[in-house]
Simulated scan of single mutants.
Amino acid sequence: MSGPPDLYGRRQKDRLWTFAARVVSAFEAATRRLAGDEPPSRPVVSLSTALVVREVNTEAEDVVSLTLSAPDWSPLPAWQPGCHVDLVLPSGTQRQYSLCGDPEDRSTYRIAVRRLGTGSREVHALGEGDVVTVRGPRNAFPFIQAPRYLFVAGGIGITPILPMVKAVRDKDWHLVYCGRTRESMPFLGELADLDPARVWIRPDSEFGVPVSGKELLTWALPDTHVYCCGPPGMIAGVRVDRRARLHFERFSPPPIVGGTPFEIELSRTGTVLAVPADRTALDVVSGAVPGVGYSCRQGFCGTCALKVLGGDVRHHDRVLTDDERRERMAICVSRGNGRIVLDL
């Protein structure tokens, strides 16, 4: 059977067709192996193109927005609320950012970035006229039709939520938007144009304490779909409640729960690395081999996937197919049982 429709009435693919597509994919892969060809790497996204920075605007303390377009202003691929793009910076650093502009405007994309680390500092150094490579858009935070919505955003987590709120103005919805101070919270001006009875701006500085999970879910009735994007503590506070349907997106890696230690052998040097129970393979490998590619750190982009030459892998990604998992491992989330050998 088809899954629930998205915001635009499109249904998920029928399972039979999905199964058939996987059979065809497996047959093609087997044909390539018999011919002696190396299986091609899984493309991370469907589009890679150079875009021009048209505008850079300060949206809050340490937050800037970038408006991007094609050099000739030709239409960009369509997107839905919840979509993100991979931004490849001039240094080669790759990071993912939610689209927070208007999906009806095919001439530009808009992203907003808080200055936190190396990648974001490079974004903040960009100016009008600079060129960056963009891959996508893709959607790891799908927005579906529902009788009512509760949107919960923390700080820069407002970026994927903002287009969702604007898309359902004529429906039953509420927004809880939290942050340290008003000055640190981007897009308050745009939210001021929405129904004030449905928007609760909740800075910690005005209440003395961080928001609680119970406060976040004030408007969550049993048939409410909750869309949440924010820091791990906020998501954890919302997840303890089971009254509503929860959809969430993190902008930091998920905590490791129930991890066990294992070892990684790097085949090209014979180096053996110990991965503790509370760290990821990506953390350990990137410390030993600087320059290892990664992006989302959550298992849905495939950038960090490496070829596995031996060992038992416990896969936790959301991007590799079953065939690909026989040969590759997303080292940001997947773990080994005992020792695994990577082609690195």
Rank of each mutant, 00 (worst) to 15 (best):
V292I: 11
F262V: 01
F187R: 03
T218K: 02
G189C: 04
H124E: 06
V45F: 10
R325D: 10
Q145E: 12
F251A: 00
V333D: 05
P90S: 03
S46Q: 08
V152D: 11
G230L: 02
V56R: 08
V85T: 13
T93F: 14
H315I: 00
A29E: 11
G258I: 04
A274I: 02
Y294P: 09
Q298L: 07
V85R: 13
C178I: 10
A140Q: 01
R11C: 13
N139R: 11
H316K: 14
V53H: 12
S212Y: 07
D223A: 04
C296F: 00
G82N: 06
V238A: 02
E59W: 06
F248Y: 14
E263A: 12
H247S: 09
G119M: 02
G291R: 11
E324G: 01
F19M: 11
V313S: 08
V176R: 12
S334F: 01
Q94T: 15
M329A: 13
Y149C: 01
D312G: 04
G291K: 04
D195V: 03
V63S: 14
S65K: 04
V272C: 00
L87V: 06
S41G: 15
K13C: 12
Q80S: 13
V45W: 09
C301L: 05
P160E: 03
V168F: 12
E327C: 00
C296D: 02
D193P: 03
L221I: 07
R328Q: 07
P5Y: 14
I111H: 01
A78D: 09
F248Q: 12
V209L: 01
M234L: 08
P261D: 14
R95K: 05
R198A: 13
R42N: 07
A29L: 10
P231K: 03
S91P: 01
T280F: 08
I264H: 01
K307A: 10
P203C: 14
P147M: 07
S91V: 11
V199Y: 09
D105V: 00
A20C: 11
G230R: 00
D343L: 06
G270N: 04
R242Q: 03
D193Q: 11
P4Q: 15
L273N: 02
V284I: 08
F262E: 05
A78R: 10
S98Q: 03
A140H: 03
K13L: 12
V88H: 05
D37H: 15
V284C: 02
T67A: 14
Q298K: 09
S65M: 04
F262H: 09
H84F: 00
E28F: 01
H316M: 07
Y227T: 08
T269S: 08
E249N: 08
C100A: 09
S74G: 00
R250M: 02
G127S: 10
A305W: 13
V211T: 13
A146M: 06
R180W: 05
G119L: 02
K13E: 13
Q12G: 15
W173I: 10
P147V: 04
D278K: 00
R11P: 02
S212C: 01
V152T: 08
D323K: 07
A274G: 00
A244T: 04
E61G: 14
D102L: 11
R115G: 14
P210A: 07
L51P: 02
D86C: 10
A167P: 15
G189M: 08
L66K: 08
V131I: 03
G136D: 13
A153T: 13
K171G: 13
A29I: 00
P210S: 09
A30H: 15
V257W: 13
A112H: 05
L342Y: 06
P276E: 10
A281K: 00
Y227A: 01
W200T: 15
